[in-house]
């Protein structure tokens, strides 16, 4: 794929050179691990159990609404079948429909829809796939969000996480989507169950939102996951890359982390390679990531993630309707 930016080869080459300096110079003069400012608010949609809106200067704007419905476990005459992976449904929609602007071949977040010309029909691309993967993956060996969705015997919540991208022409960063989903999950409340837990009848709920139950109990861990994009140019590693930086980068990863304690330590719940432009470098330089660089990239994420996720979490809690 040609890089999805209108940058010319000389521009890319210049960008590559300045980013591979030591110390590197980023276009917006950020330090390598500095994030761009973002505007975020949550629980503002009255019809949703949880919602968030995140706006980033270049990466665009998106709204997430989370709705929960009660669902009965599919019961046949003899058995009850519980397919837990289907309890959460994630969809990513682009306002204005279909392709996401000039970088449509890239798909949303640059880590999906790489099917080139065939990638155009994908719309949501793999974004929904990796967002859900991060949510479920944290459940490996221990606590899982799915445990919170059990209502009573035979009944569970079904979560619909709907992401709407409002700016179809921009290049949405994985950070935008995952921050929004993170905030929305963090501000999700479910009505309090008033019927007993162990009865098969239709469950009943209190209509008092003041005593509703948060999906993620505050002050408990792990918190909802968040995905941080990271790219490498030469020996330098950059967090939260801009569109131009992605186009010039040689290698990219999206690291999904979730906070595991109050000190800001994080567990990695997923790593995916991200499609980058490979715009600036000379041919034949670097075709993949070697292990040292991989370590360096993931380390940078792990080190910075705690503070970022904690910060987003605090903002969420300040804004929550019950705060």
């Amino acid at each position: 794929m040609p890089p999805p930016t209108p940058l010319s080869p000389p521009e890319l080459s210049y960008l590559y050179a300045s980013l591979s300096l030591s110390p590197p110079i980023r276009l917006d003069l950020r330090t390598p691990t500095q994030f761009r400012p973002l505007v975020a608010e949550c629980s503002f949609l009255p019809h949703c159990n949880g919602s968030a809106r995140v706006c980033m200067s270049e990466a665009g704007e998106c709204i997430v609404g989370i709705k929960a419905e009660i669902e009965k476990d599919a019961t046949t005459k003899y058995v009850t079948v519980i397919e837990r992976e289907k309890w959460i449904e994630v969809s990513v929609e682009v306002a204005g429909g279909g392709a996401s602007g000039p970088g449509s071949g890239m798909g949303i977040g640059g880590i999906s829809g790489a099917g080139g010309a065939t990638g155009r029909d994908e719309g949501d691309g793999g974004a929904a796939v990796w967002l859900k993967e991060g949510l479920l993956a944290g459940g490996a060996g221990g606590w899982s969000i799915l445990d919170r969705l059990v209502i009573s015997s035979g009944w569970h919540w079904k979560l619909y996480i709907d992401v709407l991208l409002l700016t179809p022409t921009s290049h949405p960063s994985p950070l935008l989507l995952s921050t929004a989903v993170n905030m929305a999950l963090d501000s999700t409340y479910l009505p309090k169950l008033t019927s007993p837990h162990d009865v098969d009848d239709i469950p009943t709920f209190s209509d008092d939102w003041a005593i509703s139950v948060p999906l993620y109990e505050p002050k408990t861990f792990p918190r909802p996951p968040m995905s941080l994009p990271v790219v490498a140019v030469g020996d330098n590693v950059f967090l939260d890359p801009s569109v131009a930086e992605v186009a010039a980068a040689e290698a990219g990863l999206v690291v999904t982390l979730s906070l595991s304690d109050a000190q800001g330590n994080c567990d990695i719940v997923g790593v995916r390679s991200m499609e980058v432009g490979r715009g600036g470098g000379k041919e034949g330089d670097r075709k993949g990531i070697n292990r040292k660089l991989l370590r360096q990239m993931v380390n940078a994420c792990v080190k910075e993630a705690g503070e970022v996720i904690k910060g987003v979490g605090e903002t969420t809690h300040q804004q929550m309707f019950r705060a």
Partner: peptide, 8 residues
């Protein structure tokens, strides 16, 4: 070199 990485 690793060209594709996917940890879950």
């Amino acid at each position: 070199e690793i060209s594709e990485l996917w940890i879950s």
